[in-house]
Simulated scan of single mutants.
Amino acid sequence: MSPTDASADAVSAPRPNIGVGRSTDHEDTLDLRLPDELIALFGAERPCTSEGPRDTGTDTDTDTDTVTDNRHRQQRLADGSAPPAAPSPVGHDLLDAVADWGPITTSAGVFHLVPVRVERDLPLICRWMNDPAVAAFWELAGPPGVTENHLRPQLDGDGRSVPCLGVLDGTPMSYWEIYRADLDPLARHYPARPHDTGIHLLIGAVTDRGRGLGSTLLRTVGDLVLDRRPACARVIAEPDLRNIPSVTAFLNAGFRFSVEVTLPAKRAALMIRDRSLRDLM
Results as ranks from 00 to 15, higher is better:
87 P>V: 09
183 L>S: 01
109 G>W: 07
275 R>C: 05
27 E>N: 06
83 P>A: 14
90 V>C: 03
129 M>I: 01
150 H>L: 00
78 A>Y: 03
155 L>F: 01
242 R>M: 06
106 T>Q: 06
242 R>N: 13
32 L>S: 10
162 V>Q: 11
164 C>M: 01
233 A>I: 02
56 T>H: 10
58 T>I: 09
203 I>S: 05
124 L>Q: 14
83 P>K: 11
69 D>I: 00
271 M>G: 01
231 A>L: 03
86 A>K: 08
272 I>Y: 04
172 P>R: 06
254 G>D: 02
181 A>G: 03
265 A>Y: 14
101 W>I: 03
276 S>M: 10
218 L>M: 02
36 D>E: 12
274 D>L: 12
63 D>V: 08
8 A>R: 03
242 R>V: 07
178 I>F: 11
169 D>G: 07
74 Q>N: 04
136 A>M: 08
167 V>L: 00
47 P>S: 02
178 I>L: 14
167 V>A: 06
5 D>H: 11
149 N>R: 14
47 P>Y: 00
176 W>Y: 14
166 G>E: 02
25 D>T: 08
136 A>C: 02
115 P>W: 09
190 Y>K: 07
50 S>F: 12
11 V>K: 05
221 V>L: 12
2 S>W: 10
234 R>K: 13
55 D>Y: 13
64 T>L: 12
44 A>I: 03
52 G>I: 10
130 N>H: 05
97 A>Q: 08
160 R>I: 11
6 A>R: 09
144 P>H: 07
138 W>M: 08
139 E>S: 12
31 D>W: 10
196 D>E: 00
276 S>A: 15
239 P>Q: 07
218 L>F: 00
87 P>G: 12
176 W>E: 04
157 G>N: 05
274 D>Y: 15
127 R>Q: 01
152 R>V: 03
265 A>W: 10
216 T>Q: 08
8 A>N: 02
267 R>Q: 11
235 V>K: 08
120 R>N: 08
60 T>K: 03
107 S>A: 15
51 E>C: 04
215 S>W: 02
239 P>C: 10
221 V>T: 14
214 G>V: 04
241 L>I: 13
281 M>G: 04
81 S>G: 15
227 D>A: 13
7 S>H: 10
170 G>W: 00
4 T>F: 09
20 V>G: 14
281 M>D: 12
263 L>S: 08
6 A>G: 15
43 G>E: 09
267 R>G: 04
222 G>Q: 05
57 G>D: 11
179 Y>F: 15
131 D>S: 11
114 V>R: 15
243 N>S: 00
61 D>Q: 07
196 D>F: 01
161 S>N: 08
158 D>F: 04
50 S>L: 11
25 D>A: 09
88 S>A: 15
156 D>I: 04
25 D>C: 07
175 Y>S: 02
218 L>C: 00
235 V>A: 12
142 G>H: 13
69 D>A: 04
4 T>L: 09
204 G>C: 09
37 E>H: 01
271 M>P: 01
104 I>S: 12
81 S>Q: 11
269 A>Q: 05
142 G>K: 06
96 D>I: 00
24 T>L: 10
55 D>C: 06
240 D>I: 00
34 L>A: 13
272 I>L: 09
233 A>M: 08
19 G>K: 10
